[in-house]
Structure formats: structure tokens, C-alpha cells
């Protein structure tokens, strides 16, 4: 490329940069990054009555002195009140269990689709994506009718004689597991499929030629090569599930404490904006590690591609 000079092509190139890089940068800076900084600011404010319902971070006093007020009470409360700590631990636990369950169901599915005859792959994949296009809320709602005490699942099991008394599944943590796995399964299958379908089949043939049994070949060849897909899919499930609100709210019960629901209650129920902001900041802090992991992996795959 020639050195940039102030001739028309160089100017056009600069304009293209300003538009392509600048506009999305500006939008995401103002409407994504800045809001997170404001959350940080309000997490160290005190709640008060009025509009807005929190104290300002800085104030010019009449004497011309800038007064900065930082209040760490909200974070102390999150640390000391066991309800918040329990909610955070339980959210991480639910996300972990569901990620493993999605992997357990999603991996064989992705593998079966990736190894299906080529003309079947796209329709099979479309069938995985299709539920994702129908309303998330309504798909969660579907499980209420199935899992209720007098719901469809209990009717079926009673009719088959498997159980004598109806099971109580709705409004328990089990229902949350089912709802999360159901809703997030496509997010696991898609990156796994993308990874597995690019796998070179000659590697497995070579392993077979050298006398390696199929299961061993899978464990020693396919599994390590699909690690990138496993991590990508797991992160796409794990990170949003930690902060999930709809599923624990509709399917969970009183013992399913999750931080997304708690934040919602603090904000809409108790109108304690600073405490809700503090919960968001702690949640964000917890998710930074898996997010950076995902980001690194993505960049490595991009470089190798």
C-alpha cells in the first residue's frame, strides 16, 4: 500500500475509517460502556427519596470545594448478608450444572449432525435453531404446563403407573435446570457443530489404520480437537445463565436464589437502585474471568484461521 498522502484516495480511506470504525465505536461507547461506568458510580451512592433516588458522587459546596462521596455500604451489605452470597454461589452452581448438562446433550447432537450425510446437515441444524426464533418467554412458559403438580408430565407418569403421587417439580431448582438447559441448548450446539464440521476426517481414518479403536480415537483425536468448540459453547451458556432472570422467576421456587432475580427485586420491588447497582458490579466482576477466557480463545482461533 502506498504511504498515506493528502490525495483523494487517502482522504477517502480516512473517511471510510471514520465511518466504519468511528460510528459503531461511538454508539457502543455511549450506550454500552458509559452505562457500565454509571452503574459503578451509583453502586457507591446512597439511596435517598427523590428523583433520581440516589446521592450524587460529587457536589460543589457553596465554599467552592468539590465534595466526593464514596459509600461502600452496599458492597459491605452484599458481602455480609448471607442472602446475597448464597444467591451468587447458587447462580454460579446453576450455571455450572446447566453448562455440563448442555454439553452432555449438545455434544452428541452436534457430533451426529456434523457426521450426517451432507445434504441432511443444514436441515438438521435449522431444526436446532428454529426454537430459538420463537419467543424465549413462551418456551419457558411451556414448561409451566408440563411440570405443574396437575400438569402434563404428572398426568403421563400417573397414567403409566410410574408414580403414585404427583411429583413437585415446578417451583424447585430442578425446574430451573430443565428450563435453562432447554432454552440454552442451541447456544451449545451451534459452536460445537461449527467446530466439529471442520474437523479433518482423514485424521480419524489414520488413527483407525494404525489400529486405534473408535472410542479411543474419539477420546485422543476428536475430543482434543473440538476443545475450542467446547469452551466457546460453554461460555455462551455459562455467562448469561449466571445472570438469568426469567427462568428462575417463572420456574424456580423460594429456595432458588439467583442473583438476576435478586437484582430485579432490589430494583423494582425495594427501589434500592444503589444496591441493585452494587449487585450488578459484583456480577460483572465474576463474569470477567470467563469472558476474557472466551475472548482470548476467539482471537487465537481467528489467528490460526
Amino acid at each position: 500500500m502506498p504511504a498515506p498522502q493528502d490525495n483523494p484516495p487517502a482522504r477517502r480511506q480516512r473517511l471510510s475509517r471514520v465511518v466504519n470504525i468511528g460510528l459503531p465505536y461511538l454508539w457502543l461507547g455511549v450506550f454500552f460502556l458509559l452505562p457500565l461506568l454509571i452503574v459503578l458510580q451509583i453502586s457507591v451512592a446512597e439511596p435517598r427519596l427523590g428523583q433520581p433516588p440516589y446521592t450524587p458522587l460529587w457536589e460543589w459546596l457553596e465554599s467552592g470545594v468539590l465534595q466526593i462521596q464514596v459509600n461502600l455500604q452496599n458492597f459491605m451489605l452484599v458481602w455480609e448478608d448471607s442472602i446475597y452470597l448464597t444467591a451468587f454461589l447458587n447462580s454460579l452452581w446453576v450455571a455450572l450444572v446447566c453448562t455440563l448438562l448442555c454439553l452432555l446433550i449438545g455434544y452428541p447432537m452436534a457430533y451426529a449432525i456434523a457426521t450426517a450425510p451432507p445434504r441432511w446437515r443444514i436441515p438438521l441444524l435449522m431444526l436446532v435453531i428454529l426454537p430459538f426464533w420463537t419467543s424465549f418467554l413462551i418456551r419457558v412458559y411451556a414448561w409451566i404446563g408440563i411440570l405443574k403438580t396437575n400438569g402434563l408430565l404428572n398426568h403421563l407418569l400417573l397414567a403409566l403407573g410410574v408414580i403414585d403421587t404427583p411429583l413437585n417439580i415446578l417451583h424447585t431448582q430442578t425446574a430451573v435446570y430443565i428450563g435453562v438447559v432447554y432454552s440454552y441448548l442451541p447456544f451449545m450446539i451451534l459452536p460445537l457443530y461449527a467446530n466439529l464440521s471442520r474437523l479433518d476426517p482423514t485424521l480419524l481414518e489414520a488413527a483407525a489404520d494404525l489400529g486405534c479403536r473408535p472410542l479411543r480415537a474419539f477420546v485422543r483425536v476428536t475430543l482434543p480437537l473440538s476443545l475450542a468448540g467446547i469452551v466457546a459453547g460453554s461460555m455462551l451458556v455459562f455467562i448469561p445463565v449466571v445472570g438469568e432472570f426469567v427462568i428462575p422467576d417463572l420456574l424456580g421456587g423460594p429456595e432458588t436464589l439467583m442473583v438476576g432475580k435478586l437484582l430485579w427485586t432490589e430494583f423494582f420491588g425495594n427501589k434500592d437502585w444503589p444496591l441493585a447497582a452494587a449487585l450488578a458490579i459484583v456480577l460483572l466482576g465474576l463474569l470477567v474471568v470467563p469472558f476474557v477466557l472466551m475472548q482470548r480463545l476467539e482471537r487465537r482461533m481467528e489467528d490460526s484461521a
Partner: peptide, 25 residues
């Protein structure tokens, strides 16, 4: 830039919702 474009994909809704509201206020 890439970070700003990837983060919204996985960011929990409650954080996006709360932060946007606080910005608008």
C-alpha cells in the same frame, strides 16, 4: 472495539437493562 462488540452477546440482560436505565436517568 472487539471487546465492545462481543460483550453484549453474553452480558446478562439485567446488567444491560439496569445500566441503560441509569444512563437515561
Amino acid at each position: 472495539f472487539e471487546l465492545l462488540l462481543t460483550a453484549p452477546l453474553v452480558m446478562p440482560d439485567v446488567i444491560i437493562g439496569l445500566s441503560m436505565l441509569l444512563l437515561f436517568v
